[in-house]
């Protein structure tokens, strides 16, 4: 394992993040605050409790997941798409590194950035609502796994994308709807039975449910199912990347 190379990639990617640290920090703070103003204060005051939790607090896990998932995908895809776009990928391909090492470097950096943003949102939320985290360690585990798996998905998208439009396509057309319909802002039990059944095919439901359980102890689906779903998702991403690297698909023409 070429640890020096992994470290070089990771630090180089993180440097991009630190260059724009203010933006990276301010934008999640502002968007979270806006969500709380709209959903927490304006609408939330008319909504009773959901699953015995105040609505303002109820949306916190979903809010974090929403940002973490979209940020992970955009970080993960941009990180590898950018070298492809500006041509610096030649260096990665000609270096004595395996694709596993490249992936660890890029995905590790992407996941770190989204983890940071997730924690910033959590901190901002604590300013608006009274938050208690029932299971802190599982909460962190879910958060880290989500950062990792969605950064991996982003990485795949970044390799697949041939232009900037395609880079936006998957997040916009698939991920955002899945996240919004995945129970970020409501409990699945609030839906009619048919839609509850349909929702069970949305993988994001399991992640948000598990994450919410870590906060409040209440969940739409069993925690073990959530853990299984995110593990399965991570494995699928890892296998896909393994295949990409073995065949050189979209990279070594």
């Amino acid at each position: 394992m070429n640890l020096t190379a992994i470290k070089a990639i990771y630090l180089f990617e993180m440097a991009r993040f630190f260059r724009t640290l203010t933006q990276s920090f301010i934008s999640p703070v502002i968007s979270t605050s806006l969500y709380f103003v709209v959903f927490g204060a304006a609408i939330g005051s008319r909504i009773q409790e959901v699953d015995g939790i105040g609505y303002g607090a109820f949306i916190v896990p979903g809010l974090i997941m929403l940002s973490v998932m979209t940020q992970s995908i955009s970080n993960g895809s941009f990180g590898i798409y950018f070298p492809k776009f500006i041509g610096t990928i030649y260096e990665l391909l000609s270096a004595p590194v395996t694709f596993l090492e490249i992936t660890i470097g890029y995905v590790g950096a992407a996941a770190t950035k989204s983890l940071f943003i997730g924690l910033v949102i959590l901190g901002t939320s604590a300013l608006f609502v009274d938050l208690t985290i029932l299971h802190p360690l599982p909460m962190l585990l879910f958060l880290v796994l989500t950062c990792l798996s969605f950064s991996l998905l982003g990485f795949i998208i970044g390799i697949w994308a041939g232009n900037f439009e395609q880079l936006q396509l998957v997040p916009l057309l698939i991920v955002t709807p899945l996240v919004f319909l995945g129970g970020s802002f409501y409990s699945i039990s609030m839906l009619p039975p048919f839609w509850q059944w349909v929702t069970m095919f949305n993988p994001v439901v399991y992640l948000i449910s598990g994450f919410r359980w870590a906060f409040f102890g209440a969940a739409d689906v069993p925690v073990i199912a959530s853990l299984g779903a995110i593990s399965l998702f991570t494995v699928i991403c890892v296998v896909t990347i393994g295949w990409i690297f073995k065949t050189g698909w979209r990279i070594r023409n």
């Binding site: 190379a5 070089a8 990639i9 180089f12 990665l92 590194v97």
Partner: peptide, 10 residues
Amino acid sequence: RFSRGLFGKP
């Protein structure tokens, strides 16, 4: 520096 690191050199 990045290039050197990428090639695994200290």
